[in-house]
Write a protein that binds this DNA or RNA. Structure first.
Length: 348
DNA sequence: TTCACCCGGGTTATCCCATT
DNA sequence: AATGGGATAACCCGGGTGAA
């Protein structure tokens, strides 16, 4: 299906990816012009426990720049000390000529320092460029280069996530694209549209919600079709590559989320996780997840081999089934890991 | 040239913790 | 990387502006 993409604003065309386009989707029976916003981001980590008080700033991307140190200062200091020597050597008379000469030197110094700064900046840019190129060409633990991994990771279509608000807002902007350039800019537009949105009747809102759901379902169908157009083994390989890319230090590593494939097999959960799951589901105790996890860990350790036996056996059974299904689906045996039954725990 | 910032509502990834 | 679920930070989008 070829979506006709109409950029919202010409000026923004260069910045547009597939994200903010109004996509005319021809569905099976009808053609609808729907605004489509695609969220394709990886939410970064929530601050860890240790970073209390350091509330993260709201922002688009992580700040990798703006960490320039105090280096330039030292260079200027160096320059000033240098000037003192020639000044001493000059004759104390003829102050006017001396002053003019000093002024001249100051101008030259300034020009020199400016040129030096520019040169340093250029060098820095070049270094960073080379660094990026190197990272791209570097082989990873799998023996593949980042470029090769990226190719193996495949490029599934983006799943658009919509909402009543997004549909409504996009529609308003589409109807009046020049509004964002008016007084107050986007801020004002968002406020105005929000006011309008709040005044919608519940049935109107419902209709926007319906539209949003349709869009999402549409997008998900497209995604599924894409996935199933590939062999399960190819998707599996892509996900292996993706996991590796996520662990790498390359820029945008987080965007390589696993491809969702309904055919994919899930490895059976371990004996302990089964135990933990059961405890949760039975509602044996309340409290936060960490609290319960601590409790589970404690109880698990207290359990005797006899009591754990059922959990290990269940795991073995699941694993055998998993191995059978794996071979049938992917055409080769599941990768073997070390000992599967840690019954004989060598507590050295 | 690149990117943070401004706004709001909605969505989602990550954290917390144990063990294997 | 997997289990459990609540909390929440960070992200998305639009365009103009100004700083790095």
């Amino acid at each position: 299906m070829l979506p006709t993409q109409l950029p919202l604003r010409l000026a923004a065309a260069t910045r547009l990816t597939t994200s903010t386009t109004f996509v005319a989707r021809s569905l099976l029976t009808r053609r609808v012009l729907v605004p489509s916003f695609t969220r394709l981001y990886a939410t970064p980590a929530k601050p860890k426990k240790g970073s209390i008080g350091e509330t993260a700033k709201r922002g688009r991307t992580t700040k990798t720049t703006s960490t320039t140190g105090a280096k330039p200062k030292t260079t200027t200091r160096k320059a000033t000390t240098k000037t003192k020597e020639p000044a001493k050597a000059k004759q104390p008379s003829k102050t006017a000529t001396l002053k003019a000469a000093a002024k001249q030197r100051a101008v030259e110094r300034a020009a020199k320092s400016k040129a030096k700064k520019a040169e340093q900046a250029a060098k820095k840019r070049e270094r960073e460029k080379q660094k990026r190129a190197k990272a791209k060409a570097q082989t990873t633990s799998s023996g593949l280069t980042v470029k090769e991994l990226k190719a193996q990771a495949l490029s599934p279509p983006k799943v658009a996530s919509s909402s009543a608000w997004i549909v409504f807002y996009a529609g308003r902007v589409r109807n009046n694209p020049s509004a964002v350039r008016g007084a107050g800019g986007v801020t004002q537009v968002v406020k105005d549209v929000k006011r309008e949105y709040d005044n919608l009747s519940s049935s109107e809102k419902e209709s926007y919600e319906r539209r949003a759901k349709e869009e999402k379902a549409d997008s998900e169908r497209e995604y599924k079709r894409w996935v199933e157009g590939h062999a399960a083994e190819d998707i599996r390989k892509a996900n292996v590559a993706r996991a590796q890319l996520r662990r790498s230090k390359i820029r945008g590593a987080k965007q390589y989320k696993p491809i969702q494939d309904e055919r994919a097999l899930k490895k059976p959960i371990s004996a302990y996780l089964r135990f933990n799951k059961e405890r949760f589901q039975s509602g044996q105790h309340r409290g936060s997840v960490p609290e319960q996890a601590k409790e589970s860990g404690r109880v698990w350790k207290e359990l005797g081999d006899h009591e754990k036996k059922d959990y290990y056996e269940a795991y073995e059974k699941d694993l055998a089934a998993y191995n059978r299904e794996y071979e049938a689906l992917y055409g080769h045996p599941a990768p073997k890991k070390a000992a599967t039954t840690p019954k004989a725990k060598t507590t050295t």
